[in-house]
Design a protein around this nucleic acid. Sequence first.
DNA 1: CCACTATATAGACAAATATCAATATAACAA
DNA 2: TTGTTATATTGATATTTGTCTATATAGTGG
Lengths: 117, 117
Amino acid sequence: MVGQKPADALMVGSSCATHKTDLHLSADQAERVADLFKTLGHPVRAQIVMMLSRGGGDVCVCDIERHFDVSQPTISHHLKKLRDAGVVYGVQHGLWVHYSLVPGVLETLRQFLNGLD
Amino acid sequence: MVGQKPADALMVGSSCATHKTDLHLSADQAERVADLFKTLGHPVRAQIVMMLSRGGGDVCVCDIERHFDVSQPTISHHLKKLRDAGVVYGVQHGLWVHYSLVPGVLETLRQFLNGLD
DNA sequence: CCACTATATAGACAAATATCAATATAACAA
DNA sequence: TTGTTATATTGATATTTGTCTATATAGTGG
């Protein structure tokens, strides 16, 4: 939880003219949303997610590696970040591991974005 | 541009069974999408964006500061990151500055997310 | 001009991140 | 068992990030 004031500190007055600032998003929810955004906030990870989506899942790590000009451990590191955030999962098939998107996990972000503008 | 292979390196064969990995997202586009995601990838910034949306724009910095338990320069720093990413803009009104969302800027992300799953 | 206020900037520092080379692990195959 | 291969982990290192205090900037009002 980062720098969040208690709820009863919201909506107090000020001398300037704008007060339309209630959040409608708890600090916990903000934390989860931000964590997902951060996870997608690297070009390699954004593209991995897109590959898994486009490929319909079950994409081999060896095929992921081919698309990028970074080392194998770096790809493995990005996959771990995606796994830890609950965005993807991997299944072992013999020597290979096939990755897929966790279904519905990006719904949180869609809802956040659709609530905006 | 981060660790992106040239396009002609895509879709080569492998000994494992999955090859459904064409990207449909250029490296430049991935960079922009990731940059926006990264910008929203902090709980304070995610909540600032939500406040601006909920408030319909023209929200005073002084009202933003009230919601968080971090110092004034830290809020200023986060607003700068949001400005630099083209997510928000501020207009001076006397001593105060009113921030708003840049209209439509999050459309890129909606499109990215709606193309997934 | 001077004091006061809101916001931004500069500088310092700790923590987190991205990357790579080297190594470990685990599954297959001979 | 021994070798080979795909992926993960470890450890080192450079860069980036988030935060603070202190200070600057710019607008308001006497």
